[in-house]
Design a protein around this nucleic acid. Structure first.
Length: 258
DNA sequence: AATCGAGACAACCGCGGGGAG
DNA sequence: TCTCCCCGCGGTTGTCTCGAT
């Protein structure tokens, strides 16, 4: 069988997603759905392969995704399910509403694995976790229950200030998008999404974006964004601002002066 | 203050399954 | 039945942050 190439390598962007790309993807899917991932990026005007779009959507942009801390119960569930199912992350994710297989996989590799078997993280055994209440206690005291996502959430915002490229604010995009659930119904029209404000995307579009040529159109390119981002070093701040970010990205609201 | 290493997470890659023609 | 294509899954990698030295 001849496998179709994943994507046309030439000219397709890789790496972290930008706010603009996220916004384009969200808007497009809200308008048209995603009947064909392979065709989607071209139709939406994204210089990405369909695979990348699907991954971004399913892991971060989908409205029902729950971001942030894994609760103790969720972590326990993951451990139990992993004991029963092994590395079937998608199956495990199916039992954890709002969590993605990728996220669960990451959490497992980063600390649940160690918790299950601190001496040999690569060996997957059962229930050391339950046999080791002391560690559990420590974890709670240390806020592990609050999970890597927490670190991510907090670091994500600051991350953006340190991205070399100006086009890599993806973490906060995810935060924003993750909180779009309740308001997502509002995103069904061009007017609501602010899609009509998007410049027509041709070959020069991204080069203009990345060179700052259309900076006024997008918050990520706004100088205030950097200030806002660098000022949002804590998760609580981040979460409190979810509606704000949502409005910024989906409705094109202006950023306040700092 | 600078450097290094570990931890954490987002994203990519390749494979296999399954549906359509 | 066979071939082609798309999608989803799991493993892996790249990059950034943070703490220790």
């Amino acid at each position: 069988m001849v496998r179709a190439p994943c994507c046309e390598k030439m000219g397709l962007k890789k790496g972290p997603w930008t706010h603009q790309e996220d916004r384009i993807l969200i808007d497009y899917i809200n308008l048209h759905g995603h009947p064909n991932w392979r065709a989607l990026p071209k139709l939406a005007g994204l210089l990405r392969c369909g695979k990348s779009c699907r991954l971004r959507w399913t892991n971060y942009l989908k409205p029902d995704i729950k971001r942030g801390n894994f609760s103790r119960e969720e972590e326990d569930t993951i451990i139990q399910l992993h004991t029963a199912m092994g590395n079937r992350w998608s199956a495990i994710a199916a039992r954890l509403p709002g969590r993605t297989d990728n996220e669960i996989k990451n959490v497992w590799h980063t600390h649940l694995k160690k918790r299950v078997n601190p001496n040999n993280p690569t060996t997957e055994t059962t229930s050391k976790f339950q046999e080791n209440p002391q560690e559990s206690k420590e974890d709670e005291q240390n806020g592990v229950g609050s999970s890597p996502s927490q670190t991510n959430s907090s670091s994500t915002i600051t991350d953006q200030t340190s991205y070399k490229q100006t086009d890599s604010p993806q973490p906060s995009c995810t935060e924003v998008s993750s909180e779009t659930t309740s308001t997502n119904d509002n995103m069904n029209t061009n007017e609501d999404t602010g899609l009509e404000n998007f410049p027509e995307m041709d070959d020069e579009f991204w080069s203009e974006v990345f060179s700052g040529g259309i900076s006024g159109e997008f918050p990520a390119e706004n100088e205030n964004m950097g200030q806002l981002q660098s000022g949002c070093g804590q998760e609580s701040i981040l979460h409190d601002d979810m509606d704000f970010w949502f409005n910024v990205f989906t409705r094109g609201e202006d950023l306040p002066q700092i």
